[in-house]
């Protein structure tokens, strides 16, 4: 279809406006010198950002989120890498069932995952906190990481690994010298994106974190107080910029050495 379709173009632009504009209000009002988020704007200030430096609870929550995010992304990417390789490399009995099972946490309402982990955790007599949150995040991030890695590994020439074995490398040497460098962009993309998912995740943290708030939990707690809203806006704006940067970096990495546009899609169903 070489012809143009201007009405569809206009519609598409409006839709993207609908997608993006609401989120832009966060940074806009984060610089507004007022406690209420309403027009007209009251004047420019960076006070709400400066306020963040002094909030000890915020720092604690940020550190908690980083810890959880790092552990969850590393573990889930490692698990997902092995699984992705199994799905790309082999045809095996029960392939679809296994795939469905591993993708389930992505589909099931998160509240159900959260509630069931909560029940088993407190009945085992363990205290709530960052440990169960991390475990929940590993479960939740694995299907995402696997989708990203499958998209990257698909079309990988497995005879390269055989060639390495043939040239005298054992299984570990092959992984280190051939597979890892070739999978690396995909692995980093999976790490970054799982980190972001964990970093932004709310429901599991809400049920499982107990008194150890993660960053989304901290924001949630602050949202109830009108007076605290402006600095939540500032924090939100920072998080959005940070997330966008990481996601763009991950996209760029994932496409290194892959020219085809179809592979630009993060999620394949």
């Amino acid at each position: 279809m070489n012809e143009k379709n201007n009405s569809l173009l206009v519609y598409t632009l409006i839709y993207f406006g609908f997608l993006y504009i609401p989120v832009l209000f966060l940074p806009i009002f984060s610089f507004n010198d007022a406690n209420y988020m309403s027009f007209p704007l009251a004047g420019f200030t960076t006070d709400h950002y400066e306020e963040m430096w002094s909030k000890r609870n915020l720092h604690k929550a940020l550190w908690a989120s980083v810890k959880v995010g790092v552990v969850a992304s590393v573990v889930s990417t490692a698990i997902a890498l092995l699984a992705a390789k199994a799905f790309v490399r082999y045809k095996f009995r029960g392939q679809n069932v296994s795939y469905g099972a591993i993708m389930m946490p992505f589909l099931i309402p998160e509240i159900i995952l959260a509630v069931s982990i909560l029940i088993i955790w407190i009945n085992l007599g363990f205290p709530l906190g960052l440990v169960p949150v991390t475990i929940g995040h590993i479960l939740f991030c694995t299907p995402f990481a696997m989708l990203i890695l499958i998209a990257r590994i698909e079309g990988f020439d497995f005879s390269l690994e055989e060639a390495s074995r043939d040239l005298g490398e054992n299984a570990w040497g092959t992984f280190y010298r051939v597979s890892l460098p070739l999978y690396l962009p995909g692995i980093i993309a999976a790490l970054l994106l799982s980190f972001i998912i964990s970093f932004d995740e709310f429901i599991l943290a809400f049920f499982l974190s107990g008194s150890d708030a993660t960053l989304p939990m901290y924001m949630w707690n602050q949202m109830r107080f009108v007076k605290k809203l402006p600095h939540v806006l500032a924090l939100g704006a920072v998080i959005i910029v940070f997330t966008t940067f990481i996601v763009l970096l991950a996209f760029w990495l994932r496409n290194v050495g892959q020219g085809k546009e179809k592979q630009d899609i993060a999620i394949k169903l």
């Binding site: 020439d157 005879s159 390269l160 055989e162 060639a163 043939d166 070739l182 050495g257």
Partner: peptide, 11 residues
């Protein structure tokens, strides 16, 4: 040692 059908040169 083997010469592979698609050569399997490490890219």
């Amino acid at each position: 040692n083997m010469v592979f059908q698609n050569y399997a040169i490490f890219p």
